[in-house]
Design a protein around this nucleic acid. Structure first.
Length: 126
DNA sequence: CTTTTGACAGCGT
DNA sequence: CACGCTGCCAAAA
């Protein structure tokens, strides 16, 4: 079962324990594909059910707008905060063996692009 | 093929 | 600690 990058990102996000967070860069690294910006882009289309407030920028904040919407969740989950920003050193999620394995599986699936437009063969002459 | 655009990251000031 | 700049990665124009 091949997986779409966006899906993978959402699935990883869903694994983050309440009270913990991951940065965009972390997820990109865990998936071993794309970069922080790709993850951010993916999160933009996150459906309800995806804990988007647990995926932050490297400085423990979220873009304007999302930041305020996230505060209630953070407080409710008892995130280690400091000046309204999540304190990364204390909140960064550390996947257990099971989670790590699952994430690794996702990463592997990503290596099989779904319907990649077949690289067009440039003539048999060249 | 080049340019622009994003829920970014790191580093120097 | 806050800005400003530069670097990055993919996708879309």
């Amino acid at each position: 079962m091949s997986l779409e990058y966006v899906e993978a990102v959402h699935l990883v996000a869903a694994r983050i324990r309440p009270g913990s967070v991951l940065t965009y860069g972390d997820i990109a690294e865990l998936l071993g594909a794309g970069g922080p910006r790709q993850v951010g882009s993916a999160m933009a289309g996150a459906a309800d059910g995806v804990p988007w407030w647990r995926v932050l920028r490297a400085d423990g904040t979220l873009p304007a707008g999302l930041h305020e919407r996230a505060l209630p969740y953070w407080q409710h989950e008892g995130m280690p905060l400091r000046n309204g920003r999540v304190r990364l050193p204390a909140a960064r999620w550390q996947p257990g063996v099971a989670d790590f394995a699952a994430v690794d599986a996702l990463a592997t699936d990503l290596l099989r692009p779904p319907a990649g437009p077949e690289p067009k063969r440039r003539g048999d002459l060249l």
